[in-house]
Design a protein around this nucleic acid. Structure first.
Lengths: 410, 410
DNA sequence: TAAAGTTTATAAAAATATAAATAAAGTATC
DNA sequence: GATACTTTATTTATATTTTTATAAACTTTA
């Protein structure tokens, strides 16, 4: 009876509603009306259509604020699904979520070396297709694929300049073509920041700095409520900020860079050196051990009270705090979140970081910034990948229309 | 015949058009339609009304881009006026502009000491009222008053925490009430940044850092095309970033802060000390000279080739460059603009600043950022104050309506 | 406990914006 | 140099959106 598509305009609003409900759990017509600056009848019409289409469900009445109670609406969890993928240098994780961020299939983890591995791209695609097939969910029910990855990522072009070279071709185009599902990519630290701001400890905050403590030291920046990437997408390069005069030589050629002084990899190297010099510690150094394994061992040992490990991490924490003090001066964030692999020793890091911030910040600035530890932990990047897809959800219709027009023009 | 007010909705679009034409000189119906995502008839209707109301004029045809030439529309220069005010610690400037940023009356400059001067507020108000009366332009023709001032400014509350205390009352409310004209305030460095991005050398750029080289070292940040102020409005606090280990003691209690090492005031003090020690220079040190006068003398001397002055400024420039290197790592700006009082020696500062940026930045980042010198110079703050008013122009109608509603509710 | 004031929801009429058709004024192509 | 194609502008019919009025559900106050 009704036309299949009611034009870009109407479905634009509906997509905006779905997106908002994904992020905000439940809202009333009145609330959405206020938010989008549309009349209540317009919202009510859109909501009714969305209910008929199976995207939205009624979700009970909210408490009254002095008048008639609003009927709340939520997104229907299984209306669509999102495929989230998190890569680090060595491992890939794939996980399908529903619209309430619940996993709807077991997570798939597999080794995927990114550095100098020309087959990585093909391997990842293969695993994605296998994973989707195995979940038995039709592809058109998957709203999109979000991929978080280390390296310098150009989000608009969909290219990673560091890893996963597709011969200059856009990675997003590659995956979109090969899977038939809209794909979006971003830097791992950026996605962790996104996750913390949408569903984590920095929820709804507008100025948030998220530190990704891993083998390197990453920074994801939320500025004015949105991911900030800078002019060329290279913003947040905290790793090469100087924290000591004439310190260790960094790969970049300078001395005293944060990454060369305080990354988990450096801490591990210092641990190995210390053991060789006979430091008493519960850490065992095996000549065959990869320093990345040593890194994990240090986190364990520190949490178990090993003095040497704690000492090393405290030293690293103080230097991180010094860099954060500079960051606070420039950005004046509401919240700094410690996230990533190193978040599990956050309790040990907190004190020296906070101490350095207080020492190196003018009080007015340090007083305005709260230092918090991630609660999402290891899941942050996957959640962030999921968020990335939904962030683009309301844009997709318009983009597709203009894309189609361009294609026709050719 | 026609109703006076055609509702918030229609006039909202018209205000958006006026604002856009103020910033962009001339645009066509088609261009505005694309920009605001409104149909051409809607735009045409609004434009016609604006022409009847005397806000907009036809501005000839633009060259064809392969079809019928678009008829361009511009804002009518004398449709409204803007009162721009620029304060520094010692002096106030008042200037009335038309909508093409042309001065429509002589600039008024007068001494106004901000520090520990409880009468400053009243004096400023008096001069404003005198100035307006003298121009003979009716108040309802003045779109707003924009005031730039040093100190920590809370823009939303309209309060300056450092100067011009109005007993906790909002400065914007004070001036709006006392003059009958909507007033907006902001930090001087922020307004300089705004001016550079709208009408200066960084025009239309989205990621811009503007350095206000004055007695202190200020930073105005344009992020994602908009002024960035941070969570508490304190962002861009470049002055207390460490640039030397164990350097000069700063007012803030730390050592080696940029401001304590490289501000114009410090350079002046170093000059005085150097002369006392017998350095050969064209600079003359009079025991009665205020060090601020010495600062101006140094700028002169350096431009005239005085080696000592150049040496002092080069040293300061290198330290500023060191701080900018950090800024570039974090913000990845497209452009850094040198502006403010010190811009007149920019040619001397450029080399050491650029040198330090190259030395302390990883190449990928320094390559993406251009270092430029302001062309607006001393006018920047006034232009910025004018921009501030127009930035708020499209918001005002809605804000007034909601404000009026609140007032009625009481 | 009744009355008054809020907030939310729905259904009608009224206002507004848009798409489609048409015209006008160019450029590019053969 | 005529024809086809672009881009811009105007008009009209169509579609959408909002206002206004009304009702419903609830809190607060007298």
């Amino acid at each position: 009876m009704e036309p299949e598509n009611k034009g870009v305009r109407g479905s634009q609003l509906k997509n905006m509603i779905i997106k908002k409900l994904y992020f905000n759990k439940a809202m009333s017509c009145a609330g959405l009306s206020e938010l989008f600056d549309k009349s209540i009848p317009s919202i009510a019409k859109a909501i009714n259509e969305l209910m008929h289409e199976g995207f939205v469900v009624e979700d009970g009445y909210a408490p009254s604020s002095g008048g008639r109670r609003p009927l709340m609406y939520s997104v229907k969890a299984n209306a669509m699904y999102i495929l989230a993928i998190a890569l680090d240098q060595l491992t890939a994780r794939i996980q399908l979520f529903d619209l309430l961020n619940n996993p709807v299939a077991d997570m798939l983890t597999f080794e995927l070396k990114l550095l100098n591995n020309s087959e990585a791209l093909g391997q990842l695609l293969e695993q994605i297709n296998i994973y989707i097939k195995q979940t038995d969910i039709p592809k058109d029910k998957i709203a999109g694929i979000g991929i978080g990855m280390p390296g310098f990522v150009n989000v608009t072009e969909g290219i990673n300049y560091t890893y996963l070279d597709a011969g200059g071709q856009s990675l997003t185009e590659y995956f979109t073509d090969q899977t038939g599902i809209d794909t979006y990519i971003d830097n791992d630290s950026s996605l962790i920041a996104l996750a913390e701001q949408k569903f984590g400890i920095a929820k709804a905050q507008k100025e948030v700095m998220v530190i990704n403590l891993g083998w390197g030291i990453g920074l994801g920046m939320i500025v004015n409520g949105k991911l900030f990437r800078g002019h060329n997408g290279f913003a947040g390069e905290l790793s090469h900020i100087p924290v000591t005069e004439d310190g260790a030589l960094c790969e970049c050629g300078k001395r005293g860079c944060l990454e060369a002084e305080a990354s988990l990899l450096v801490v591990a190297q210092k641990a190995v050196a210390g053991i060789k010099q006979g430091r008493i510690t519960s850490l065992k150094y095996n000549i065959n051990d990869h320093s990345k394994l040593m890194g994990d061992a240090i986190l364990e040992a520190a949490n178990n009270g090993d003095q040497f490990a704690i000492e090393l991490l405290s030293d690293a924490g103080y230097k991180i705090g010094k860099a954060l003090a500079i960051l606070v001066h420039i950005m004046n964030p509401a919240i700094i979140v410690l996230s990533g692999r190193g978040a599990k020793v956050a309790k040990i890091l907190m004190a020296p970081i906070q101490q350095a911030i207080h020492k190196y910040c003018i009080p007015r600035l340090s007083a305005g910034t709260e230092l918090l530890v991630s609660e999402l932990g290891f899941d942050a990047e996957l959640i962030g990948a999921s968020v990335l897809v939904m962030e683009n959800f309301d844009k997709s219709v318009k983009a597709k229309v203009s894309k189609a027009k361009k294609a026709i023009a050719k």
